[in-house]
Design a protein around this nucleic acid. Sequence first.
DNA 1: CCACATTGAATGACCATTCATTCAATTCCA
DNA 2: TGGAATTGAATGAATGGTCATTCAATGTGG
Lengths: 192, 192
Amino acid sequence: MAKLDKRSEIVRAAVQIIADQGFHGSPMAMIAERAGVAAGTIYCYFESKDILIKELYREIEGKLLEALRVGYQTERPIRERFLHLGINFLKYFVAHPLESKYMEQFHNSPYGVDLRRGRFAKEFKDDDLLYLELFEQGVAQQVIKDLPTILLFALAFGPVITLTRDHILGFIELDDALIEKTIAACWDGIKR
Amino acid sequence: MAKLDKRSEIVRAAVQIIADQGFHGSPMAMIAERAGVAAGTIYCYFESKDILIKELYREIEGKLLEALRVGYQTERPIRERFLHLGINFLKYFVAHPLESKYMEQFHNSPYGVDLRRGRFAKEFKDDDLLYLELFEQGVAQQVIKDLPTILLFALAFGPVITLTRDHILGFIELDDALIEKTIAACWDGIKR
DNA sequence: CCACATTGAATGACCATTCATTCAATTCCA
DNA sequence: TGGAATTGAATGAATGGTCATTCAATGTGG
């Protein structure tokens, strides 16, 4: 069925272009051209550019979540689980630069604000829950500092986000050893 | 002299509007209106929108650097200096939401990428140098983890950036106590 | 009266979205 | 089965809106 084919060509093209030009540098006409379809065709699959952008995010987020869950065991100690998630997180982004750049664009835009607003309103996504649960248990077990969850998020994710950016821009080569050291340092930041 | 007056009205208006609408949501015509001048007048003071944006950044950065230097003493221990800088950093942003939002917009845009590219090319700014020196000394004295400087930056600034954002969006109220705890946690992340 | 500051309408680009039209594939019917 | 009718995916030129920037005209302080 050519229908799915075109859709996925559009998705591929859109992620590629948006990842390195940003939303404003990615006219629908350009996406269409890269996908090998006409401008109007995109609207057969996505109501608007806005909806296309959100849909791409959902697909990428899904794949990331999958990567995070691989080998994740709820019964392991807090620290090990934290390291597992953090390391998988960074490794996923290093292995998937396009997706990584896309998420970066998404988060640093009004879309990202909406996302955060949703979290603030307790509309958590699956990956939020993974961390939320971890932090709550960690605080209860007194292995993690007793700070507001949002602050723990900042301490745990802030360095990862910043570092991912530096990696994307080619400022640092992240190999497995460095990734592990980084996440270990993040743990030092939140552990009691 | 009305000339300086108009210039600073333009600056004020531009920072206000860009801070909460972003660069794309801030047409020159709107900035002009808020400043009480005609659209063309802006071009008497700034060659282009691009130059206006960079100039605003320079002015804000200057004020931030000033705030960081107040009470900073090179002869104090590494940890104390780190806490001093980090705490002043966060306090400045909490006290100056407009500047804070403007910097956020700036960093999350192609301008921010240029900035980072400059750092990567060793074109450091004064505030970079402040931290750079601190990290180098800390590593030499074996009180800070022996990691690449860029990674130390990420560990130290990542949480601050993330948290500033959350504060801007009203997701957390940062009082002095919380600020101190946050920076202390960042220190835990980089200390040996 | 002049040099200079200011004005704001006009210009030219750029872009998301629309929609009349095309046409290949499918359905229908004799 | 063969040919006509129907469908709806795909197209891409046209539309309408937004904006940065320009510049001829106007205002003004010295």
